[in-house]
């Protein structure tokens, strides 16, 4: 089997499991939607305010919801002892990592397909543009790259639910800034060139963390 088909096999396994019990996507989407709804009560939303705070609320919501989802995904893994089984398989560790990251990427992406239209409605902003697709893709890649690494690390920690956000959120802050700032440029109707620097930053973040995490993952699963 080629590397790509191994990665896809692991990702697809997680996806099939998810289609059956819908645990993670529901957790992520539900949490993010609640954050959005609560903010519509907490902030007096007129057209100016919505443009000003909307991007920040959206990405803060997705980041926190993403943590919840990652916790859930690895809790399932622990319950079924499937991570141990995966380690016994004669597959190189970086492929296991990329497979798991692919699975998490798909979960968060699917959740965003639900969340972003609701965001557009609640905040009355135009978000269905190519720029948004690029931002969402880049951010989700980075989230799942860092999140998969830290979630695998936190599996055996006593206070996993606390530990994962404490590790995950500071590390992804630059990516979060990039997402918020470029979304903000987008809702004010500015062009690609205005957000180019932020998108480049997001690309650099994604490349750095996918490569390094894949490389470093062998140290986590070794016993």
């Amino acid at each position: 089997m080629g590397s790509l088909s191994i990665i896809w096999a692991i990702g697809r396994k997680d996806l099939l499991l998810e289609i059956r019990n819908k645990d993670v996507v529901v957790a992520v989407a539900g949490f993010a939607l609640l954050v959005l709804v609560i903010f519509t009560f907490a902030i007096d939303l007129n057209q100016d305010n919505a443009k000003l705070v909307g991007p920040g609320v959206l990405w803060a919501g997705i980041a926190f919801a993403g943590v919840t989802g990652l916790n859930r995904a690895f809790a399932l893994e622990v319950e079924g002892d499937t991570l141990e089984a995966l380690m016994l398989a004669p597959i190189s560790r970086d492929l296991i990592y990329l497979g798991k990251a692919l699975g998490n990427f798909l979960f968060i992406a699917i959740a965003q397909i639900i969340v972003i239209p609701v965001f557009a409605v609640l905040f009355n902003l135009v978000v269905f543009r190519w720029e948004m697709l690029a931002i969402v893709l880049l951010t989700t890649i980075g989230f799942s790259a860092v999140g998969t690494l830290f979630a695998a690390m936190s599996v055996r920690v006593r206070a996993r639910e606390v530990m994962l956000p404490l590790l995950f959120l500071p590390v992804v802050t630059p990516l979060l800034m990039a997402a918020v700032e470029s979304t903000s440029h987008m809702v004010y109707g500015r062009s690609w060139s205005d957000m180019a620097q932020w998108l480049q930053l997001a690309v650099a973040f994604d490349v750095a963390f996918v490569v390094i995490s894949a490389f470093i993952f062998q140290h986590i699963l070794e016993d």
Binding site: L149, M153, L167, V171, T173, P174, M177, A178, E181, Q197, W198, L201, A204, F205, A208, F209, I212, I216, H219, I220
Partner: peptide, 22 residues
Amino acid sequence: LAAIIGVIGAIDTPIIYFAANL
């Protein structure tokens, strides 16, 4: 695992600084 966090923090530093600077 702690060593991994230490290394990740170091890798993240220039990215955070660049982002914050922007």
